[in-house]
Design a protein around this nucleic acid. Sequence first.
DNA 1: CAGAATAATGGCACTCAGCGCCAAAAAGAT
DNA 2: ATCTTTTTGGCGCTGAGTGCCATTATTCTG
Lengths: 196, 196
Amino acid sequence: MTATTNRSPGRRAVTDHGAIERAAFRLFEEQGFDETTMEQIAEAVGVGRRTLFRYFPSKNDIPWGQFDQSLRAFAAQLADVPSDVPVAEAVHGCVVAFNDFDEQSLPQHRIRMRLILGTPTLQAHSALRYAAWRGVIEDYVAARLDVEPDALLPRLAGHVSLALAVSSYEQWLREPGSDLTRILQLEMEALRSYLR
Amino acid sequence: MTATTNRSPGRRAVTDHGAIERAAFRLFEEQGFDETTMEQIAEAVGVGRRTLFRYFPSKNDIPWGQFDQSLRAFAAQLADVPSDVPVAEAVHGCVVAFNDFDEQSLPQHRIRMRLILGTPTLQAHSALRYAAWRGVIEDYVAARLDVEPDALLPRLAGHVSLALAVSSYEQWLREPGSDLTRILQLEMEALRSYLR
DNA sequence: CAGAATAATGGCACTCAGCGCCAAAAAGAT
DNA sequence: ATCTTTTTGGCGCTGAGTGCCATTATTCTG
């Protein structure tokens, strides 16, 4: 009886995204993002520099981890909202849910966001990730209103939701023990009253 | 009588920002932004590559031209608004004024913004310019409300104003003959009704 | 067990942005 | 003429990112 191996053939991967992320974050904390080279990260992981670029398309992508997967969950959550909920309410509710993390993953999330929002190089790169995030909202709003995703209102909803989210993260990072969910709600109310 | 020379001593500059911008834009149009090297721009201007970096801190900064000066005008315009005008109205009015261009400079402005908003590399870099633009709004709102510039409302006002502006530009670029001022007004109304 | 097939690794060499350094060029001032 | 000031641009380096490809590790098949 042969040992049933339900693995695909080929050499086993030497590392994974998580290990690279951990090594990289440690170096980023120690020396700063711009001062850390891919060479150093590769050495810390115990892997070749070339291999790093197979796991992350760029150094700037490391702090974002598995963002693409989160986006799929985000889209799924939006799709699950009953269609009798007003669009703006559906979007805002899912934005809040998207940024609701368990108690235990909060410290890491805070480090991640502090790095992303506090490093100019990463602020710039984030624009591309933000665009993908907005795309999810645009598609949902477009579907709900039966218009094109690049029409005025879907785009506006995407941009404004992002503005609110980023603004909330900045506020959250400024106050050590604060609650992100609460701040998101607070900012929405602030926006409404600001425009009145 | 000696010829009075009220110039400062030293070698005369061989080029200027305008000339570099024109040469660069022609190349960007012809081959695309990422495909154009600083080497090529230098050659087109008839200047050393090293010199280019004295005029623009990076290749990404070329499409933005003299944005810093515009920001000073933006801040001045905000400061001129009578204090009995509601804050949100003052901000929105100045955002509209900031993006009001003469008939003749419109075609070039359209080319510039199409390049910036249509090139991922530049979208990313723009985040840094946007931050400076938001800073002007934050400072104004903070002064008007007598709070810190990094407080919740000034930040939110900055982010939301930017969201509205970028969203408007995207809409403006989509419709060939459209009026940016009108679109900005339209988006503001759309935002109010969206949040209601 | 001996290949054959498959999949990940990582070295090598290259392009390009960006920067520090510094000598040369071009101008006014004495 | 010489000194001073300012811009230029060449040189050489670092570091991100990429294409190419031989090497290595693993499963599959006869």
